[in-house]
Structures are given as structure tokens and as C-alpha cells.
Simulated assay, not measured.
Amino acid sequence: MEVFKDMVHELEIGRDNPDGADQGFIGSYFPDLLDQPMFHPPPNGTKLDGRYRLPLGYQMDATYYYLRLRWSVPCGPNSVITFPGASWLKPWYWWSWPVLPLGIQWHEQRRQTLGYGAEMPVVLIQSVFYLGIMAMTRLARPTLSKLCYRRADKNISTLQIGLKVIAIWSILAAYIVPFFVIPHTVHPLLGWSLYLLGAFALSCIAINAFLLPMLPVLMPCIGIFGVLLVMACPWYSNGVVRGLAIFGYAFCCSPIIWVSLVKLMSCLQVSLEREAFMPKLVESTPPAGFNKLY
């Protein structure tokens, strides 16, 4: 404890630090650390005096695991694992797994210690909300002619462009909004399940409102589910093979996504034209007895 207090004091007075980080501070505080003997726990549990160097396995960098998808150096249950990298791709965020394979193990440790009591009410509320949206879209199937058109509309082309923009943005929002409203520190399995449920539920609104085919609209959702399976596959021999598999999946999936996008835009145009001219056809149709009178 005295050593720790002295280290805090050295931080407060601004001890010289070669790199400005924790490793540089420790190296300057213990300049003869490399000359100290290696620590090995005594078999009989006796107390050791003096300074010792901890083996590499006591503090591991997660990148050592990602290269071979296993620990190539000793890493016991008392080890400390650090996760360097971007601040938005840390293992406590639900979207970091399966991008980071160790994320699920981090959350397993949290489940056994802190739990997810703070996030579960929000998860349940969002799940009920999305299920309610799915039920409403199944019961109420509106058409564009009833919602968006009147018989007095003159500029149909401008209205079609506006509706097309609204349809595209509604589909994009269906995939973006659920990502930001899910609690960031929820378990990855719950997070991804809730995201896919939310994307599907919100996509149903655009599908029913604009009379779009379901498969092209949901193709990004299917693609996301597929890449999750590819990344989470536990049978890769090393990280290079895993990276090549992800690249191969993206290469094969990209044309399918593009074809779905083209199909979606074509169906959207057909739907808008059909709904746009329907009121005009109704207006231009003469009464049944009109020809008989003249």
C-alpha cells in the first residue's frame, strides 16, 4: 500500500514519463525492473518478499488472441486482458461481438458479477414495442391512394419523387434507429437479437405503406444476420482464415444486395405510378348510363 501511495504522489508531482502513458510511468518508477527475478507462485503458498517481474501471461493483449484465435502464450484465470483499439469498439459494447471474438467472454464475466439488471427493462420495453408494430402492420394495411392522394392533386410527378424519398429514408431509418436506441452495454446476443427484431418491425411499416416486396427490403437484414454467423463461427484455424471468410462472404453478398436494391427501386416506382394514376382513372371513368343518354 505504501508503494501505491507513493506512485500516486509521483503522478501528482509530474514524474518524468518517456511515453506519457502507464507503461512509461511504470518503467521510470521501477528502472531496475528488468533485472528483477521472474515471479513464480510458490507451491506451498508461502509469502515472498522483494520485487519480482510477472510473466507475460499475467497481462495479455487481446491482439495476441485474434491472430490465432487462441492464446499462444500462458494465460491463466488470474490474467488481466487489455483491449486496445478504437474507443467505440470495446468489448462492453454489444456491437463489438462477434467482430471481437473475446467480447462474449468479457460479457460472460460481467453476467457472473454485475449482471444486466439495469438494461433489461429497456430491452423488454423495446421488444414489446417492436412486436406491437409488427402486429399493427399485419392488421392495418394502408394504401398510398388512401393516405397520400386526393382527387384534386395536379402535380403527380413531384408527389411521386417526394414519396420515393420518404420511402428510401424510411427503409434507412428502419436499420439505423434500432442501433442507437438499444442500451450500449447490453449482452451482445440480446443486442443483436433486438436490433434484428427492430429492423424487421420498422421495415414492415415501409413494406405495407408503400406496397413493397418483402424480400428486397429485408435483404440487408438477412445479410447482417449472415455475416454475424460467419464471424461467430468457432471452427476457424486462425484469424487470417477468419478474415478471408468474412471477405469472401462480403464479396458474394454484395451483388445480391445490389440486385435487391435495383429490384426495390423498380418496385417502388411501379407502386407509386399505379397508386398515382388510380385516382385519375376513377375520375375519368364515365358513369354506367352516360353512353346510353348520349
Score class of each variant (00 low, 15 high):
residue 170 S to C: 12
residue 29 Y to L: 07
residue 84 P to Y: 14
residue 65 Y to C: 02
residue 185 T to P: 00
residue 282 V to I: 13
residue 215 L to T: 10
residue 120 M to L: 08
residue 112 Q to V: 10
residue 74 P to K: 09
residue 229 L to Y: 06
residue 69 L to R: 12
residue 123 V to D: 00
residue 223 G to A: 12
residue 281 L to W: 10
residue 46 T to L: 13
residue 194 L to N: 02
residue 26 I to Y: 08
residue 31 P to K: 03
residue 131 L to I: 15
residue 244 L to P: 00
residue 262 V to Q: 06
residue 139 L to Q: 14
residue 283 E to G: 02
residue 179 F to G: 00
residue 123 V to I: 12
residue 112 Q to C: 08
residue 79 S to F: 10
residue 178 P to I: 03
residue 63 T to L: 11
residue 159 L to Y: 04
residue 108 E to N: 12
residue 169 W to P: 00
residue 112 Q to L: 15
residue 167 A to M: 09
residue 153 D to H: 12
residue 198 G to F: 02
residue 192 W to T: 02
residue 59 Q to A: 13
residue 157 S to V: 15
residue 44 N to F: 15
residue 27 G to A: 05
residue 260 S to W: 03
residue 72 S to N: 12
residue 159 L to A: 09
residue 169 W to G: 09
residue 93 Y to D: 02
residue 281 L to V: 08
residue 266 S to F: 04
residue 82 T to L: 14
residue 156 I to C: 03
residue 10 E to I: 01
residue 210 F to D: 00
residue 119 E to L: 06
residue 240 V to W: 13
residue 244 L to G: 03
residue 161 I to E: 12
residue 197 L to H: 07
residue 199 A to R: 01
residue 198 G to C: 07
residue 197 L to A: 09
residue 36 Q to C: 14
residue 7 M to D: 00
residue 15 R to G: 06
residue 180 F to A: 07
residue 251 F to P: 00
residue 221 C to L: 09
residue 266 S to Q: 06
residue 244 L to T: 10
residue 169 W to C: 11
residue 32 D to C: 06
residue 111 R to F: 10
residue 177 V to Q: 07
residue 178 P to H: 06
residue 138 R to S: 13
residue 50 G to A: 12
residue 193 S to P: 07
residue 162 G to P: 05
residue 219 M to C: 05
residue 70 R to M: 10
residue 11 L to I: 12
residue 275 E to T: 05
residue 121 P to S: 05
residue 260 S to P: 00
residue 149 Y to F: 15
residue 152 A to R: 13
residue 107 H to W: 08
residue 6 D to M: 10
residue 166 I to N: 04
residue 95 W to I: 11
residue 143 T to W: 10
residue 102 L to P: 01
residue 17 N to W: 05
residue 103 G to V: 03
residue 69 L to I: 06
residue 55 P to I: 15
residue 34 L to A: 13
residue 235 W to C: 07
residue 137 T to G: 03
residue 78 N to R: 13
residue 46 T to G: 11
residue 167 A to G: 06
residue 168 I to K: 05
residue 255 P to Q: 08
residue 164 K to V: 05
residue 40 H to M: 14
residue 100 L to W: 02
residue 1 M to H: 10
residue 291 N to P: 02
residue 79 S to K: 10
residue 161 I to A: 14
residue 221 C to H: 02
residue 136 M to P: 01
residue 7 M to I: 14
residue 120 M to R: 11
residue 129 F to Y: 15
residue 183 P to C: 07
residue 177 V to P: 03
residue 132 G to K: 12
residue 68 R to K: 09
residue 233 C to F: 14
residue 5 K to V: 03
residue 33 L to P: 01
residue 99 V to H: 07
residue 290 F to W: 13
residue 157 S to G: 12
residue 40 H to T: 15
residue 49 D to M: 14
residue 66 Y to L: 09
residue 2 E to Y: 07
residue 207 I to R: 01
residue 239 G to I: 04
residue 271 S to H: 02
residue 16 D to L: 03
residue 219 M to L: 09
residue 148 C to Y: 15
residue 154 K to C: 08
residue 176 I to G: 01
residue 267 C to E: 05
residue 74 P to Q: 11
residue 272 L to W: 02
